[in-house]
Every structure is written in C-alpha cells, then in structure tokens.
Design a binder for these strands. Structure first.
Lengths: 221, 221
DNA sequence: ATCCCAAATTTTGCATTCAAAAATGTAAAA
DNA sequence: TTTTACATTTTTGAATGCAAAATTTGGGAT
C-alpha cells in the first residue's frame, strides 16, 4: 500500500465527516480497516496534521481538527486571497478552450440550479472554482488552494441555502464567467472576493462552527 | 525527543543548505546525528515532503527539494498574493503600538542599509514582512506564508544586490511603512506586490534556479 | 453514596526487526 | 576491452516489540 494512498483515504474519511470534527481518531480501528500497521498510519496522521486536518495531542493521540468560527473566518479570508490571485492570473493565461470548458461547466451548474438539485449544483460550483484556479497555471497555488479548501469544504458545500441567496450566488457566477471571458483580471478578482465573502457570511451566520463530536452525537440521539 | 523538534531541526538543516537542493537525504546519518531511530525521522521527512521541502521518491529515498525557475516564479506569485492580502488585513486591524514596532524595525533596517550590512539588512527586512503578516491577525495566513517563504527564503535573502536595486528596495520600504501608517490597505497591497515582483525579477535574473547537488559538487571541486 | 487514590489496562511514541526493492560489484561472454 | 547476466550488499518500506505515559478501574475512607 502506497503512502500517498493511506493519506488520501484518511483524508477522505475526515472530509466525509465519517470521523466528525473533534472526535478521537481510533488508530487500531483504522489499521484494521486499511489493513496496515500503525507505522504507515501514524506517518499519514502526521502529514494530515501538517495540513491542518488532524490535531495531534502529545501522548494523547490524534483528533479530527475542529474549527472555531475564528478559524473558519481566517480560512475563508485566505481562500478569498488565493481565489482572487488565481482569477487575475487565470485571465492572463487562460486560452479559449479552457474558457469554453468553464462556460460549459457553468451552463451545467445553472441547469442544476434550475432543477433545484443543491448537491449537484455544489459539485458544479466547486468544479468551476477549481478550474479557475487550475487555469492560473501555478501548481504551488493549486496545492495551497486545495489544502485550504479541503478544510472549509464541509462548511462551504454543505450549508443549506435560501432561495434568495442561491439566486444571488448564480448571478455572481454569471458575472464571474463574464469577467473571465473578457479577461478582466481585476474585475474577476473583485467578484470572486465578493462571492466568497458572501459565502462566508452565510456559513458563519448559519452557525457552522464545527461542533464537538460529543455534541454531534447528542444531536443525532 | 518531540516530533515537532525533529521536523524543525531537519527543516533548519535544509534551509541552511547544509543538505543542498537535489541532494539525497542520508537517513542513517541523520539518525545518528539526531540520536533517533528511523521511525521518527521518516515521519518528519513525510511531513516536510507535504510542506514541499523534501521530495520523496518511492523506493529510492528522499531528496532535498530542488526548485526550477518555474517553481520559483510560482512561489513568488503566491507569496505576492499572500503578502498583498496580509497588507490589506493588517491595515484594518493593526494598532498604533504594532505600527510603532514596525516603524522601529524599519528604522533599524535603514540603518543597516546605511552601514552596508546586507546580512543584517535582510534580517530586518524579513522581520518587517513577517510583522506585517502577523498584524493581519490571521494564523491560517501566517502559517501558509511561513511555509511558502521557507521554500524561497534562500533565493529571496541570499541573492546579491546591486547598489541601485538596494536603494530602490529601501525606497519601496519607505512607501510600505507610509501606507501602513496611513492604514491604506489598497495602497499597501499594491506596493507589497510591486516590491515582491521586483525581488522576483532580481532573483530569477540572477539565475537562482537551484542547481543539482551533483552540479554543486562539481562547482566546488 | 461520594470522593479519592492506587493498581491494572490501554494507548502512545519510538526502537528494532524483517521482507522487498534497488544499487553495487563480479565474472563470463562477445 | 566492453557489455551483460547474476549474485551480493545496501537501502527502503512496513510490521512488530517494548518502555513510558495516560486512562480506566476498583477499593477504601469519609
């Protein structure tokens, strides 16, 4: 079993919320499940801790990272900065084919919106944001963006939306595509920031501070 | 020996260039030197690989990461974005005491410039940039900035300078301090970008693409 | 019944060990 | 002499073992 695969699988488990934020990560169980010994598992946990997805407590094991409102705000801020930068760079470097792909993804997303399919809408939404970042042609940026977005993904793409906000978000996306097609870097950067700022406000207002595992258990019960 | 300490010490060894970019990392030797076994060492190497300082080659060991011109350009771009963001946030949040500290650091740096002490000038320079980022009050940003700057530090703070460029850089820093004192976020952001773009041009023009370890050995020989 | 402290158990962190893969060295053939 | 095939050594990646730390459990005192 390859090292990267172990990291990827545990990351997936954490992002799926299978181990909820704040919950203890059961080493032994994961070892059994992934059919590996503790050595590669612990290496993976250290890597994920460096990424911010796991919290290591000396002599007390590891927990799925739990984000406070402040953490969430901070990460959204950074994400804004990264997307704004990506937008500017993308406008300088993107070619017509890539714009075509993004336009297609946009059309698909709008269709999902019309169908009222929030899950698929979010999926398309995310694909567009990732495509813009990819179009910046900067792997270092892409990597950092991936790491930051992974941490706020659940908040960003799981929050319920009001019809008004959803409609507004779609409008913003029209503007995003438009700016991209006009290669208006400054404009795109500006819209992306606003877009993400609105998303952040939604998320924080929805009280998406990640709850303790115990709280979560209580809620479910 | 604490896990973080091992990571920190190896990081220092890499940043000092004691193991030059591209060179193989001698596991056994480092184990002896740090008085640890391979298990914690390998955990640390995996973490540093996630940070981008180490390159892992399956079944072929690890090497100190070697940056191409493109890598360097990309990282400088990201660094620009992060500093620009930090500048804007800092202007919103910084208090007079913090500005005073940065002003003092600036004065000290200018003094070093007058003395012609490049090493100390760079040290002060770095302290100012880090203080601005810290003033943004965003730990997520601070962490990302640290990780990105670590990778380009050698290029950024080791490149020799012409008197003209040095003088110009000092001028830019005057403008940086000025914008900060006026809490002009947009202005500061703009200046920081330009400042870093100039630095990047210097670095890339100086041909600071990191050389193979073998090349380095040949050069020395 | 509750609280507190000590013993037992579990869990963590690291060293050691083991198997597999790669690198190296050697010898034979072209 | 050069090249190639093979055996040996080294190094890597992962499992296991062991000591220390933390958590849990049980018993006794209040």
């Amino acid at each position: 079993m390859l090292h990267e695969e172990v990291v990827g699988r545990i990351r997936a488990i954490l992002l799926d919320g299978e181990i909820p934020p704040g919950a203890r990560i059961p080493e032994r169980e994961l070892c059994d499940r992934l059919q590996i010994s503790r050595t590669p598992l612990r290496e993976a946990l250290k890597v994920l801790a460096a990424e911010g997805l796991v919290q290591l407590l000396p002599h007390r094991g590891s927990r799925a990272a739990k984000l406070t409102d402040k953490d969430m705000r901070d990460l959204f801020e950074v994400c804004q900065g990264l997307e704004a930068l990506a937008g500017e760079l993308a406008c300088e470097r993107i070619n017509d084919a890539e714009i075509g792909e993004i336009a297609a993804a946009h059309a698909d997303m709008v269709q999902r919106y019309r169908e009222g399919d929030l899950i698929q809408y979010y999926r398309g939404n995310r694909a567009i944001h990732e495509a813009i970042v990819a179009a910046a042609g900067n792997p270092a940026l892409t990597g950092l963006y991936a790491s930051v977005t992974a941490r706020i993904r659940r908040a960003r793409y799981v929050t319920p939306m009001t019809p008004q906000r959803w409609a507004f978000a779609v409008k913003e996306h029209e503007a995003i595509l438009n700016a991209l097609q006009r290669r208006d870097g400054a404009g795109l950067s500006h819209i992306l920031r606003a877009h993400l700022r609105h998303k952040r406000e939604e998320v924080l207002q929805a009280g998406f501070a990640e709850t303790e595992a115990s709280d979560l258990a209580l809620r479910i019960a």
